[in-house]
Simulated scan of single mutants.
Amino acid sequence: MPAVPTSGPDGPATDQQEALLAALIELERHVGSAGWDAPPRLFALVQTDVFAAAEPALAAELGLRTTAEGAAPAALTAIEQEDFVPTGDLLGDLAALEWPATVFGCALSAERTFLPAGQEGDLPEDPAAAAAYVAAHPARQDIRVVVGADRAGNVHGVARLVSAPNELLGAADLVPGLGAALAHTLV
């Protein structure tokens, strides 16, 4: 996957699309540096130029560069929401969330276990039994996703499989339900 898209489904990628993808790639590296088996983590995405103007000393301490200093247009800075405590119902947790206007976007990292296509034939209907079945299945795959949305209407996700640690996957519709839930928090 290229680090920054040169085009999207509707033509050349916009600065905001490129900034969102760059922020998600950086977040995946950041979250991944702590290893696996981590709880979901929530991040506010603020425009770096706006952040630097509001908090110049902190921006300098963090080493943030503005557009005037050569940063990419529309660059985003991630701020972890350390008070975010997921209840086990991520979509429900996000449904109760609203961001102030100063937040341009948001992102969430989460780890999941799934079965490859064709392996889910005997999956029980009971959610607890299905989770236990997947966890014990020899073909299970563990994945970390980082999905983000912004106020410009962009949604994107990146993912890394435990079984392919050097490969980063990405797509606008990687986790559509999670992307839509994040976008809804910005309305």
Rank of each mutant, 00 (worst) to 15 (best):
L97M: 10
S109P: 10
E98D: 13
H137M: 02
T113M: 00
F104M: 15
A129L: 11
F114L: 09
C106H: 08
L90C: 05
A132W: 07
G105D: 03
V103R: 10
G92L: 03
F104T: 14
D122P: 07
A110P: 01
G118T: 04
A110D: 01
A135D: 12
A101I: 14
A96H: 11
A132R: 08
C106R: 08
E98A: 12
A101V: 11
G105T: 07
P116G: 11
P124G: 04
W99H: 12
L94I: 08
P127F: 13
D93G: 12
G88H: 10
F84Q: 05
A110M: 01
F84L: 01
S109R: 13
P127S: 08
F104H: 15
S109W: 00
P124L: 05
A135Y: 14
P100C: 10
Q119S: 11
L94K: 11
D122H: 15
D126G: 03
L97V: 09
P138S: 06
L97K: 04
D126S: 06
P116I: 01
E98C: 09
D122E: 14
E111D: 06
A129F: 07
A95D: 05
S109D: 12
D126M: 06
A95Y: 10
H137R: 05
S109F: 00
A131H: 07
Y133R: 00
P86H: 13
A107Y: 02
A117V: 03
L91E: 09
F114K: 13
A95C: 08
E125L: 09
L123N: 01
G121M: 07
L97T: 06
H137N: 03
A95W: 12
A132V: 00
D93C: 12
E120Y: 15
E98S: 14
A96G: 07
T87E: 02
D122W: 11
G121N: 04
L90T: 08
G121H: 08
C106Q: 06
V134K: 07
V85H: 15
A96L: 13
P138L: 04
F84D: 00
A135V: 01
L108T: 03
F104I: 05
A139L: 01
A95R: 13
G92Q: 08
A131E: 02
C106M: 10
H137W: 04
F104D: 15
